[in-house]
C-alpha cells in the first residue's frame, strides 16, 4: 500500500538495488598438476613452446598501484632491481596493451568494478599478480570496506605476501609467473563466472 509497493507494481527497477561486484562464495582455486600436455606434435607443440617463451619474457604490466605496495612496485622498476631484465619494464596505462596486472595495494569495494573492468579490457592471454597482504587476502583490513582478496574479483595467478613486499619478493613472484607461463599452466577459474554473479555494465 505504500509508495514502495506502488513503484514495484509499476515495474520500475530500483536504481539503488544493491549490486555485488565481488564473489562472496568460496573462491575457486586452480587445479594442481596441470601442465603442457606432452603431445607428439612437431610443428604446433614446438610453436606453442616458442610462443610461451616469448610471452613469459615480455610481460607488460598494467599500472594498477592502489596503495603503498605501488611504491615498491615502482622501486622494482627502477635501476637497482630493474624489472626490465625480465622484459616487464613497460608499464602500460592502457589495459589494451598489457599482459599482466600487478594489483598492488588494498582493493576497496568501490574500486572493485574498476579493477574488473580493466581486467576485462586486457586482451588474452592475461595474468594477474596479487602483490601484498591486502591484495591477496585483505591483510589487516578485515572490514566491510576492503575486498578480502582480489581473487574474489579476478582470477589471480600468483600471490606475493609481504606488507609491502620488497622488490626482491615481487621479482620472485614474477619469476614464478614466468615459469608458470612457460609450463603453459592455465589461468585459475574466473570467480565471477563460477559464482554466477554479474557486475554493472557487463554483458555476461
Amino acid at each position: 500500500m505504500g509508495v514502495e509497493d506502488d513503484i514495484q507494481n509499476a515495474g520500475t527497477p530500483n536504481p539503488w538495488a544493491p549490486v555485488q561486484y565481488f564473489s562472496n562464495t568460496q573462491t575457486p582455486r586452480a587445479p594442481r598438476g596441470i601442465e603442457r600436455p606432452e603431445g607428439f606434435g612437431i610443428v604446433l607443440t614446438q610453436m606453442n613452446k616458442v610462443l610461451d617463451w616469448s610471452r613469459s619474457n615480455s610481460l607488460w604490466p598494467a599500472t594498477f598501484g592502489l596503495a603503498c605496495c605501488a611504491i615498491e612496485m615502482m622501486s622494482a622498476s627502477a635501476s637497482r632491481w630493474d624489472i626490465s631484465r625480465f622484459g616487464a619494464e613497460v608499464f602500460r596505462a592502457s589495459p589494451r596493451q598489457a599482459d599482466l596486472m600487478i594489483v598492488a595495494g588494498r582493493l576497496s569495494v568501490k574500486m572493485a568494478p574498476v579493477l574488473r573492468r580493466i581486467y576485462d579490457q586486457m586482451p588474452e592471454p592475461k595474468w594477474v599478480l596479487s602483490m601484498g597482504a591486502c591484495a591477496s587476502c585483505g591483510g589487516v583490513f578485515n572490514n566491510y570496506a576492503i575486498v578480502q582478496g582480489v581473487d574474489k574479483v579476478v582470477p589471480v595467478d600468483v600471490y606475493v605476501p609481504g606488507c609491502p613486499p620488497t622488490p626482491d619478493m615481487l621479482l620472485y613472484g614474477i619469476n614464478l609467473l614466468q615459469e608458470k607461463i612457460r609450463k603453459h599452466v592455465p589461468n585459475p577459474p574466473d570467480p565471477l563466472k563460477v559464482s554466477g554473479q554479474t557486475y554493472l555494465g557487463s554483458e555476461n
Partner: peptide
C-alpha cells in the same frame, strides 16, 4: 627468508 610467492594461497 623472503622468497615466498606461490600460485596457490593455501600454500602460504
Amino acid at each position: 627468508i623472503y622468497e615466498l610467492a606461490s600460485t596457490h594461497p593455501e600454500d602460504l
